[in-house]
Design a protein around this nucleic acid. Structure first.
Length: 292
DNA sequence: ATGCCCTCCGGAGGAGGA
């Protein structure tokens, strides 16, 4: 079973490329970020024709997360319980996009689904924008709230095959920073605070791709020829719980998706799961014949 | 370097990205 995450940078611009890749690579479940549209604007037909169902969480032209899956999805969660909002309290926003406990509007940055035994989240972690910007504080609070909720999920079920996957907007190691416009002490994505926020997930989930793909970036800025110079960043991760990580049999970073016509600035990050290693009752109907 | 490129909305130029 193949699972992937991809910041697509507008699904309306990219859907042909995305569906082609899903079919070509035989992907079962894709977590998308930055779809940049509402559900009524999402190109669902292109996915349906390729055999994929969708769960979509998009509020407006910003952010937006979704899942495409060949398998049934259930227990859909739009946002997590402790997720903070951002911006100014706006009267009437409760009905439009929901608000947090402080009355701040929630953004479309987290979508959870269950596929078989797997609990999967598509996450678009706030960018942070700049050191000292209130958006960076939002980023850190958002991550801490996610960590607290994820700790609760795993406390309730330590054997839960959980994957937190998406665009984390943090380069955890110096080897993950190849873009010279990012530097410790000068920019977001590499600050000690952000790296500590990601490292705090260590007791819960681990990067399941790095042990198999030790090198390579997942994002290259469109500006300044960052891709041809290979000045990218590794900021997209599949973070798996113990039970999830134990079932991983392979992984890849689809670097070729940054080439050709109209690429996203991010590429897909992929892992393969052997359902028989999950120890549960998941049946992959694409691997096993249906018995009637 | 308040730059570069790309996408959004709206119909110009600002916001946001990382």
């Amino acid at each position: 079973m193949r699972i992937a995450t991809w910041n697509v940078n507008s699904i309306r611009t990219r859907f042909g490329r995305v569906v082609d890749w899903l079919v070509r690579e035989d992907v079962d479940v894709l977590a998308m970020q930055e779809i940049k549209c509402r559900p009524d604007q999402f190109p669902v037909e292109a996915f349906a024709q390729a055999g994929y169902e969708l769960e979509i969480h998009g509020l407006n032209q910003w952010n937006g997360v979704a899942f495409a899956s060949r398998h049934e999805m259930s227990d859909v969660a739009r946002g997590f319980a402790g997720m903070p909002g951002f911006g100014k309290p706006i009267a009437g926003q409760e009905a439009v996009q929901g608000v947090d406990a402080a009355g701040l509007p929630l953004e479309a940055r987290a979508l959870g689904v269950t596929v078989g035994d797997l609990r999967l989240w598509s996450l678009y972690v706030p960018n942070g924008r700049a050191l000292g910007d209130p958006h960076l504080d939002y980023k850190l609070r958002w991550l801490e709230a996610l960590r607290e909720d994820a700790a609760g999920w795993l406390e309730a079920d330590p054997e839960l095959p959980l994957a937190l996957m998406g665009d984390w907007n943090i380069a955890p190691l110096d080897a993950d920073m190849g873009d010279p416009s990012f530097a410790v002490g000068r920019s977001t994505h590499v600050s000690p605070e952000e790296r500590a926020a990601l490292a705090a997930f260590a007791p819960l989930v681990e990067d399941v791709v790095r042990p198999i793909v030790p090198e390579g970036y997942t994002f290259w800025d469109y500006k300044a020829g960052r891709f041809p110079k290979d000045q990218g960043m590794r900021i997209d991760f599949i973070m798996g719980s113990r039970a999830f990580a134990d079932a991983v049999t392979g992984a890849a970073i689809a670097r070729a998706e940054r080439t050709g016509d109209a690429p996203s600035d991010h590429v897909p990050v992929v892992c393969d799961i052997d359902p028989s290693l999950l120890g549960g009752t998941f049946e992959d109907e694409y691997d096993r014949p249906m018995v009637f």
